[in-house]
Design a protein around this nucleic acid. Structure first.
Lengths: 215, 215
DNA sequence: CAATATTGGATACCTTCACTTTCCAATATG
DNA sequence: CATATTGGAAAGTGAAGGTATCCAATATTG
């Protein structure tokens, strides 16, 4: 198919497709002449993936590019798979909006230690956790006794369920599952959490206090 | 204190403070003359909260405004607390980046039904879940048998732990905990998840396949 | 085969967001 | 009194993510 059909099929404007081509997110079509190229089903899939990354997963174009590059060109060993997945999907630089330079890693390290986890002590994620904890503190929120550790243990269950889905036979599939799982399940997780909150809160108020209302 | 000291205390540029004042995120200081106002400790706290919302929690200025307004002006009943929290913190409109109009709510509804949750059938969260699920599909990721339901059940535990921290005595505190918990714990959750993945993956490869490396 | 439509590619432009800068006149402060 | 600071308004900035415009080289159609 040609670009206009690719556009129709995916509902992405031609100009935008050209933009993604320029940015290297979408591989070029197969040239048939100086002014023509044909695109395949693979391009349709790729484009849908790109939109998934830029939309729900909220990645920047740059981060999406990193993700796609890792998938296209997987690391050598299984040991590197998760690392590659995480560095590829780590939030762009230190920016975004108002954030700060170097949060105190102490609380984050302590929490991880309390949970007994083995993590890369220099990973971005630890810094993220640190500034997230600082934000919680700034909000003056209760996280009740041992709450964060409990939180952590539950999250560990999630991680286990996820890592279990990573195929161990072929590295390219492992990378794909790992990388895309890392980013694409984030919005699933967040929306499920909110829906679960609705359920929990609903039970609380309909069961106990107001047995008259359900909505 | 005056604006310059507020700026020094919080590490936020004066111009930015003025901007937040203009946007209504930060309440004005107490005027002492036509060209002077004094700011209190409350302003320091508020400013830190604002930065927490704009930074780690990744809210837009507009969304942060909504959040702060709910806190300042809480709903009447406990029944409305979570709803207020969720609508205040729902991602801005349908925008952000490339997203689509109306995903098929079917799969999302089915999942929620399978989990036996009672949720608002018209809530934004359901739409979010739907498009998140579509994104997962676009990525062609495995979510293995009953995986999503298991995922959901685990997330429900989290939600329970969170909702349990909401005080039931005073509504203003309930709202604050609820609203801020919703947004400020998101980055905690996401970074913990990634750290947990590191731990799980690490155990997998050091215990089973390569008992020689620990890194 | 001539007339019209499409394409790849380059370049310029646009919009939103979150700030920053610049000005100014009215005070504070030394 | 001289200098510094402030609140407030308004314009400017830089990054991000696209869009729009052109153009010459084909394709397609009648």
């Amino acid at each position: 198919m040609r670009i206009s059909e690719l556009s129709r099929r995916t509902d992405v404007p031609v100009a935008t497709i050209k933009y993604y081509l320029r940015e290297g997110l979408l591989p070029p079509g197969e040239r048939t002449s100086a002014t023509q190229a044909v695109y395949s089903e693979a391009h349709v899939d790729r484009l849908e993936l790109i939109r998934a990354l830029l939309g729900p997963a909220r990645l920047s174009v740059e981060a999406a590019g990193r993700v796609l590059r890792v998938i296209d060109d997987p690391p050598e060993t299984f040991l590197d798979v998760l690392g590659a997945a995480q560095t590829a999907t780590a939030p762009t630089g230190a920016s975004g909006t108002a954030s700060d330079e170097d949060p105190d890693l102490g609380p984050a390290r302590e929490l991880v230690a309390e949970l007994g986890w083995t993590v890369d002590p220099g990973s971005v994620e630890l810094t993220q956790l640190a500034s997230a904890l600082r934000a919680v503190e700034a909000g003056g929120i209760d996280v009740v006794d041992g709450g964060l550790a409990r939180y952590g243990r539950t999250v560990h269950d999630l991680a286990q369920a996820e890592v279990a889905t990573v195929p161990t036979d072929e590295i390219s599939r492992a990378v794909r599952q790992s990388v895309l799982g890392t980013v694409l399940l984030e919005p699933v997780l967040l929306s499920l959490r909110r829906l679960a909150q609705q359920d929990v809160a609903g039970r609380l108020f309909t069961d106990a206090e107001h047995p008259d209302r359900a909505d």
